[in-house]
Amino acid sequence: MTTDDLVREGTVNPSLDDALELAAALQANLNAVVLGTPGAVVAATTAVLAAGHLLIEDVPGVGKTMLAKAVAVSIGSRLARIQGHPDLLPSDITGVSVYSASSETWEFRPGPVFAHVVLFDELNRTPPRSQAALLEAMEERQVTVDGESWPLPEPHLVLATQNPIDQSGTFPLVESQMDRFLLATRLGYPDEATETRLALSHGAQPSLALLSPVCTPSGLAAAQAAVAEVPVSPSVASYAVAIVRASRADPLIRLGASPRAAIGLLAAARAHAVIRGRDFVLPDDVKAVSVGVLAHRLVTDAAPVGAFEAGIVAVEAILERVPSPRP
């Protein structure tokens, strides 16, 4: 498939070529704001292009919210923000039906989830009931209130941040909800020089204000569609499946990755290939996204504290073990 074949109807961002441009511009935007953590930037860009949801997990104060904000601004769409707290109700997320006196009917007032980009801060401070409300929205891309379904806008991207669960006052995310996130990433602490710069420049807020959108929501949707059509050769696909299956056979892992994980692995690999400027997927792409896609989905024997770290180690061990395809 050549670039020309990827040109489709439409007025904005018609081709994979535009997706390439978008990826580069988005990365540049995020790098301008999120300093010192290139891995997280790649993960965020991958999630945006693969139309997946992103979970950012780290201790407070390293710029999780900043990254999410930067993504939202860069995509040029409305940003709806939900601050997670123990009192958050499901209707605070999805919206409510209110009685209209003039029409004498119940009217649905959409909640903040009806935005292109939803930033869910401190997801694990939200009670499970509210987390479940988000679950349907993320997977079904629709909201059901009072028996009526309301479709969410396309593209729809949930960026959730959470503190590691050793912090007090948190509700661990249920396993099925973890599976809804395409990628999980962590930011880590910036190095000394970057931290000094951040401290001097009052954080990243000023640079956030300078950001300009790199595309429109419809442009992003076209780019996502183009990315989803990037061809994957059978050997690479079976490599991804082999990695997922290896996670189920691993004695250290209590619950391996689901078939959805394999789908997500390939979707993320496609996006990663586009970020690397290719219109085909290499085993290297699968390798590069495996930790991000799989680590948070695995349930290991390790204590809930540090489960994510245990997942990372397990996935890396799997990558060392599974033979990569020979051309």
Binding site: V7, T11, V12, P14, A25, S212
Partner: peptide, 23 residues
């Protein structure tokens, strides 16, 4: 200022904002 640029490309009319001189 922000600019929305309307041009004709081989695929048709394109109306989109331009953020910087590169785009």
């Amino acid at each position: 200022r922000r600019i929305v640029l309307e041009t004709t490309e081989s695929t048709g009319r394109v109306v989109a904002p331009v953020a910087d001189r590169v785009s």
